[in-house]
Computed example of a mutant assay.
Amino acid sequence: MVPPLQGPVVKRLRLGLDMELVETYRTHSARITCMRLFPLIDTPLYRSDAHRNEMALVTSSTDRTVRLCWKGQSRCYKGHSGPVTALADKLLDDGECKILATGGEDCTIRLWSMNTRAKKHPLISTLHGHEKTLSLLSVAWHKSSLLVSSSKDTKVKVWDTMAPPSSVSSSCVGGAHLNSSGPPIAIKCYESLCYIAAGSEVTAIDLRTMKKASVLALRNQRILSCEMLPSEWLICTGIKDKALLWDIRKPQELKHTVAELHSDGPVTLLHLDPYKVVMGAPWDGQVHVWETRTGHLVNRLSCDEPVKSGGRSTVSAMAVDGCRIVTAGSSSTRGSLLHYQDFLRSSVPVALPGKEVSKFWGSQEYDDED
Rank of each mutant, 00 (worst) to 15 (best):
P3A: 12
P4Y: 03
L5C: 09
L21G: 08
E23Y: 04
Y25I: 02
R26A: 15
S29I: 09
I32K: 11
S60V: 11
T62Q: 13
K71E: 10
G72R: 06
C76N: 04
A86F: 02
A86V: 02
D94Y: 03
C97H: 08
G103F: 09
L111H: 01
K119P: 01
H130L: 04
S150E: 03
V156C: 02
D160H: 05
S166G: 05
S166Y: 08
S170P: 06
S170R: 15
S171P: 04
G174W: 13
H177T: 14
G182P: 13
C194R: 01
Y195P: 02
S200M: 10
V215L: 10
N220S: 11
R222Y: 06
I239R: 05
A243D: 14
W246M: 00
E260C: 10
H271T: 00
P274T: 02
K276M: 13
K276F: 11
G285Q: 08
R293S: 13
N299C: 15
E305M: 13
P306M: 08
K308R: 08
R312P: 09
S313V: 06
T314F: 00
S316Q: 04
R324C: 09
A328C: 07
L337C: 05
Y340T: 00
L352R: 09
P353I: 12
F360N: 05
W361P: 10
G362F: 10
D367Y: 07
D368I: 12
